[in-house]
């Protein structure tokens, strides 16, 4: 048998939820371990093998000078680098700091902020190093993660659609909640992948997967305004887990809290 590819999982600024998706694979995890050497995954095992690694999964965003250097080392040790989750692909919820002055928060939260070394912004991994594939979501969908690993193992392109969440809603037969109830929903501008969970439970899409391939955020926002959504709420809708994602950032910037 050919030598098994080596997998590493790296954590940057994040909540661990995405890398836990790999452990959450449960039934499939043993099969993954059969075909891949889990070489560096501190969340799962203390045994750490040296690089280089065939596949690196990177979770989290860049928020400190230390991490800004560390991602370069990760890249240099990785044949293939895949970012997983909203933090790694769009800066995550911590990118909300990009709209404020982070030093003010440090002064409020920490007794001795001078010990803290932090960047003013939270940025995606792709802003710092070349990325081979970005898997979206907050958190990522474990089936999509398996698909990406699978595609990597078999040398093919992952089947990960970049179209809207609406396509997933329609395929599962959910009646559009914006049309039937007037519930504001980010689905039409949001990247598919979750399987359209929230609308199936009568909740508008929160946009966890960031912008879809060709997001028309201004048209959707205009329609939601007509549904009675305030500018303040609109800004909140675009500034959640993917606030720094370019299309969401641009749309969120158009609405100010002063209109509440």
């Amino acid at each position: 048998m050919a030598k098994k590819p080596k997998l590493a999982v790296w954590k940057f600024a994040s909540c661990d939820g995405c890398q836990l998706s790999l452990l959450d694979c449960e039934d499939e995890l043993l099969a993954v371990a059969d075909h891949i050497t889990i070489a560096n995954f501190p969340e799962a095992s203390r045994a750490v093998l040296d690089g280089p690694y065939d596949l690196s999964l990177v979770e989290g965003s860049i928020t400190t000078p230390h991490d800004r250097d560390r991602i370069q080392q990760v890249r240099s040790q990785s044949k293939c680098l895949v970012t997983i989750g909203a933090c790694a692909t769009a800066g995550g919820i911590q990118a909300l700091r990009n709209f404020t002055d982070v030093r003010e928060y440090m002064d409020i939260v920490y007794a001795s902020p001078e010990y803290i070394s932090v960047l003013q912004t939270s940025t995606p991994i792709a802003d710092h190093v070349p990325v081979d594939f970005e898997l979206r979501g907050c958190p990522i969908n474990k089936n999509q993660l398996l698909e990406v690993i699978n595609a990597f193992l078999n040398g093919r392109r992952p089947n990960v659609s970049t179209n809207s969440v609406c396509v997933e809603c329609k395929k599962r037969g959910t009646a559009c909640i914006m049309v039937t109830h007037g519930t504001p929903c980010m689905g039409p501008v949001t990247h598919a992948g979750c399987g359209a969970i929230c609308p199936a439970y009568n909740r508008g899409c929160y946009g966890c997967y960031g912008a879809m391939e060709t997001p028309n955020t201004s048209s959707l926002a205009g329609w939601m305004r007509d549904l009675g959504v305030s500018d303040y709420e609109l800004q909140r809708m675009f500034r959640t887990y993917n606030a720094e994602e370019p299309a969401f950032r641009q749309e969120g910037d158009r609405y100010g809290p002063e209109d509440t």
């Binding site: 809207s164 609406c166 501008v189 028309n216 048209s219």
Partner: peptide, 13 residues
């Protein structure tokens, strides 16, 4: 171009 969301709902429905 300004109005359509390219969400594909029309084609699915």
């Amino acid at each position: 171009e300004r109005r359509c969301l390219t969400c594909a709902n029309c084609t699915m429905a």
